[in-house]
């Protein structure tokens, strides 16, 4: 006899859900295996099982289990939402959209659904629609994490330096421990050229999730941007194409002025600019390679 023998399917489901929230997927699987042995057709238990598979990236198994859930209980809200997420991960985007739209028509008051649809629209470059969906999500669910994230992403894409700070501060206030919040803050800090501050957050993020390759790559990227040997490139990294256009025009003007007032220095200036151009193109990729190798990537 084991400790779960007298539990109902709903109690098993709650236990599994708590374990999943704490990312104890192995224990959740054991509980669910035990529960499904006695309740093989319980929709909630099957849904929790699909959730574990989805979160551990076994998408095929997750899809099969969700379809099984929907065969038993076609209107299972959580399972249908999970189905949209699975389609999204499998890059079956129109299928994901179809499921989300169906859910939105049935549950138009659920802000979270608008936020999920907004994320899908961002990925497919329907930016204005995504921003409108994010605003609707935030209107319906001002505290919802995904709604806040969707709004912050919209503000970051828009590129207004002040607006993202407002949505991000709301996110940080409500979900300070969340990794997505930290990642968005890093993106914002990179956008305003605060590479050193962004690196400190990325390092903390890596400490909290040491096995995340994504976080390690982020730290390496920021290590490159904030390395002392690339300091001369800071304006180009910070202002991108605009800075390059300005440097190009300034070079032409200086070259012309040197031709008039100090023609003997023209070739030295020309050599310097060629060397600077070669350094700006070839040195950063080499530095990235070296830092990646050092980080074991």
């Amino acid at each position: 006899m084991n400790e779960f023998a007298i539990l109902t399917a709903a109690e098993y489901s709650t236990r599994a859900s708590v374990l999943i929230e704490r990312q104890r997927f192995g224990q959740a699987r054991s509980v669910l295996a035990e529960a499904l042995a006695s309740h093989p057709d319980d929709a909630d238990l099957l849904y929790q099982s699909a959730r574990v598979d989805y979160l551990t990236e076994d998408l095929q198994q997750a899809l099969e289990t969700v379809r099984h859930v929907l065969a038993i209980e076609p209107l299972h809200l959580d399972a249908r939402y999970l189905l949209a997420c699975i389609y999204d991960e499998r890059k079956e985007l129109p299928a994901s959209e179809a499921v989300l739209l169906e859910l939105l028509r049935e549950y138009p008051e659920f802000g979270m659904l608008y936020a999920r649809y907004a994320m899908l629209m961002y990925r497919t470059f329907h930016i204005d629609k995504a921003k409108a969906l994010a605003r609707e999500a935030l209107r319906l669910a001002p505290e919802d994490e995904l709604a806040l994230i969707a709004c912050a992403i919209g503000d970051l894409i828009e590129g207004d330096r002040k607006v993202p700070a407002a949505t991000l501060s709301a996110l940080i206030r409500k979900y300070p421990e969340n990794a997505d919040t930290a990642r968005l803050l890093v993106v914002h800090l990179i956008g305003i050229g605060q590479y050193w501050a962004a690196k400190r957050i990325a390092v903390e993020l890596l400490k909290s999730q040491p096995n995340s390759r994504e976080n390690l790559e982020l730290v390496v990227q920021l290590e490159t941007l904030s390395h002392w040997t690339v300091l001369p490139l800071w304006p180009l990294n910070r202002w991108g194409v605009a800075a390059t256009v300005v440097v190009f025009i300034a070079t032409m003007v200086i070259f012309k002025l040197l031709g008039i007032f100090a023609p003997e220095h023209r070739s030295a200036f020309s050599n310097f600019m060629i060397a600077f151009m070669a350094y700006s193109w070839f040195y950063p990729p080499l530095l990235v390679r070296w830092l990646k190798r050092r980080a074991g990537l």
Binding site: E97, M121, T124, L133
Partner: peptide
């Protein structure tokens, strides 16, 4: 406003990861 937001935007030809 919502009806406009609930119109499908993706087709079967939509590429999964355009960059």
């Amino acid at each position: 406003m919502r009806e406009h937001l609930l119109t499908p935007s993706l087709t079967a030809e939509t590429k999964p990861s355009v960059s």
